[in-house]
Design a protein around this nucleic acid. Structure first.
Lengths: 338, 338
DNA sequence: GTGAAAGCGCTAACAT
DNA sequence: ATGTTAGCGCTTTCAC
């Protein structure tokens, strides 16, 4: 049961550890015969070099750590796929962790990953971290320790490579789209009101209103959290004004909104048009299928991994920020363009 | 930028490494004054003990590795949560990896996790691994190396602790339920036909047919893979016989089936009743909401983590297999019981 | 062809 | 109160 080491093998053959090391690594320095016997025995005993020792020796683990806030959000799953793809292509493994939007969980994970376990880090900030701007830990890491790439939920206070979505434009264009299809009262419903991403989309929403010469009505802007009763909130919203457009800031929110709106007797899209964010699995299979803003998660993941690997190889490059544009996938939850 | 070590600090203060070690660990052996100066300097320089070195020393990493086949399946996400909960409660971190149903990916991940990186492993087999019965690697690991718990997709060939779902009973009871609500022709649609889980449910399905005195019609049993066109397959199925009940073996399959059946003009549940597996996010928000078999993923995860931790502490306990029962969550995609 | 020694970063037992 | 030594498992000079 106990793991076998070079030392054990050396004792068994009554040779030195370094001889065994060379033998298992198939060095030409060792005689064919001894080499073969050692290799056979090693296989028999299931010898595996201890990675910990090797990593310590190489001061590298060929592993990159990833922290995402929420694995139930399909966007992050897509990003993960993208990261993994590029990482594997470059001989890196990834270890993915979930912060669950919690600052504490994020810090603990960071503590774990930092200090030798990984060669680099790719992170999207937990909402709590963004809200409280508690980024000292990450600043330190970025400045003094290991290569770091931030994506999607980033912070200006941290100097590092970043991959971000053009969320301002996304909010702006989507709102404009509502107007184009004839909507008058467009609500903005956000489960991530306090994250950078939510704020930027909100700014875009405001700009579109302004440009269209429509008043900004803060009652049409709803921020809610997991604890809130979305049903109740939507009820207020729908009774407040004849809403005919709703923008939901993630996929599950859009799906829930659709469900609630339908169950209150509205027709989607004739009475109310709905657009969500993230082109995931749910949105295509609900009825009607949802029009969504795709952030190209996989692409973002690929870019983030590329940036990180470049940084690992050239620690002194200037920092880069990559901006990724969104696309609107028009389906059946929005009225047709005339 | 370079990481600072005890050695560096020792040099700076012109003391020995062990003195520094004791100082940063707040040992009483060190004089107040020196201790304080060292600690200050360490903080200033962002000293962090190298985990690799510590783990090597302790021959333990307080980390457990998890490999799941598919992160898009909500069941596995739930299991992950359960594992993480118990792991954290016991001072363990988890690192979760995805095999993507591929044997090769699973092996590579295993290779990485094995050999010192984790103290134990929790795995649900990739379908390819189950189909081909390529479990030698895992056998070795279980027998000679690190504690292993298998869940859901297990193999009889591997001697270790296991947590399994009573899939036979689930298939049996669910099929019986279809009969109870008056269905005559119940189809069985599986994206995991070759996994142990799919097979057991299928056995249960057969037993229910038998008990009800109905003939087994293999044309009503459909196995498909990601490459197949489910639309086409369902089309054949629906034209073949007046199907009035469909059992889909995972959540996304059930949702897709619902979508296809509806779009062909059938009423759900009046014409066709549908039941799926896994109580996830999608099934409640489609229309009509889907009746689902819950496997209690989180509970399974908790049990798996408990078993693993017990095994780590007592390597010589006899192996255990925990069987978890499913429950049927009746919603609107099935006809009501009379 | 084989082995001794040093070292990766750290701790702990044992001097001094 | 501080330092020395040994060792975790491994590789890599450098001797022999």
């Amino acid at each position: 049961m106990k793991k076998i080491t070079l030392k054990d093998i050396a004792k068994y053959f009554d040779v030195s550890i370094s001889t065994v090391s060379k033998a298992v690594n198939d060095s030409h320095e060792i005689s064919k015969d001894l080499k073969q016997r050692i290799q056979e025995y090693a296989k028999e005993q299931h010898y595996k070099p201890n990675k910990l020792a090797l990593n310590l020796l190489n001061r590298s683990t060929k592993t990159i750590g990833v922290i995402v806030p929420n694995i139930l959000n399909y966007f992050f799953v897509q990003v993960l796929y993208g990261i993994e793809k590029v990482a594997n292509e470059n001989g890196y493994n990834i270890i993915s962790c979930i912060s669950n939007e919690s600052y504490e969980k994020e810090s603990k994970t960071l503590e774990f990953l930092d200090s030798g376990t990984v060669d680099g880090l790719i992170i999207s900030l937990a909402e709590e971290t963004q809200v409280k701007e508690r980024v000292e830990g990450l600043q330190e890491i970025a400045e003094n320790q290991i290569p770091l790439v931030l994506f999607d939920r980033v912070s200006d206070l941290i100097a590092c490579d970043k991959v971000i979505v053009d969320d301002f434009e996304a909010g702006y264009k989507t709102t404009k789209y509502f107007f184009n299809i004839g909507c008058k009262n467009v609500a903005f419903v956000s489960p991530i009101g306090k994250s950078s991403v939510g704020k930027l989309r909100h700014e875009g929403y405001k700009k579109a209103l302004e440009e269209a010469g429509r008043p900004y009505d803060e009652k049409l802007v709803v921020n809610f959290t997991a604890k809130d009763d979305l049903d109740l909130i939507m009820s207020f919203l729908l009774n407040y004004k004849p809403i005919d457009g709703i923008l939901g800031l993630d996929e599950i929110t859009a799906v829930k909104i659709l469900h609630i709106v339908k169950s209150r007797g509205y027709n989607v899209p004739n009475d109310v048009s709905i657009v969500g964010f993230t082109n995931g699995q749910l949105s295509q299979y609900v009825t009607p299928s949802l029009t969504m803003v795709s952030q190209h998660g996989k692409f973002i993941g690929e870019k983030a991994a590329e940036l990180l690997i470049k940084r690992i190889q050239h620690p002194d490059r200037p920092f880069e920020t990559k901006m990724v544009k969104t696309s609107l996938l028009v389906r059946d939850s929005t009225k047709k363009l005339q």
